[in-house]
Amino acid sequence: MHKKKKPQKLDLKYLIDMQMINKWFGDYHVLRDINLSITPNEKVAVCGPSGSGKSTLIRTINLLEEFQQGCMEVCGLKLEVSNITKKTKREVNNRIGMVFQQFNLFPHLTVLQNLTVGPIWGRKISRQEAIHRAKKYLNHVHMYEFIDKYPNELSGGQQQRVAIARSLCLHPDILLFDEPTAALDPELVNEVLQVIEELAAKGMTMVIVTHEMGFARNIADRIVFMDQGQIIEESPPDQFFDQPRSERLKAFLGQILNH
């Protein structure tokens, strides 16, 4: 077996440690004094009203968005405003996987090619090993029989499961999910949530932006509530739902739970 060495095992207190992160889109202050730390194996759900900056927050973690103030440490890499370059972006993304709301599969590639293009051309892993990994993770997400299909031949739920397998092929230390079920028809939501739950049970560190409150409550060790670019409140699920402290969280929970 050609087992490549995994990048050195991370022995860190925090996999993600954001300190006083601020970000603007033009004049719009979209992230305000964000402090967020995530320990290995932790599962953190992020929720909040639309436009509160949840996507921007997790896209900042893997540097798809740049921040303008503050600093953070991601998987041992110290990131400051001044050292965000193409190189650090790639390094960070070698450690972090991401699953998008709109799946973002590569439409011109088959399922197998979608899963192997990153490992082969980005990580210089042998083709054999890349295919081996792809098959393994397609099995995990129950998509093995679709290996030669193109994305547009799959349902939304199937595409999202392929996207999850794609990010697993890179053996990430952290997985980020940006509303992974928001673009799905209701009857397809569960097959995706189930795959994520299986991953959680295996000990993957995850940050999940979601509107599925029942799911968040089940899976998360901690839930973060965002509003207007700030983290208003963070607490374990039971406390989050049963004893919300801030008025804004109470109002938010009132809106989404009672209708």
């Binding site: 893997n62 798809l64 193409k86 972006k89 790639r90 993304n93 070698n94 972090i96 996987g97 991401m98 998008f100 709109q102 973002n104 599969l105 590569f106 293009v117 990153g118 490992p119 051309w121 980005g122 990580r123 794609r166 990010s167 092929c169 890179l170």
Partner: peptide, 20 residues
């Protein structure tokens, strides 16, 4: 989004252009 996805699967500028 295609550029974002390419970056998150570890592709650099050249392979992003050439393959994606």
């Amino acid at each position: 989004e295609q550029y974002d996805a390419a970056l998150t699967v570890g592709l650099g500028w050249f392979s992003t252009m050439a393959f994606i």
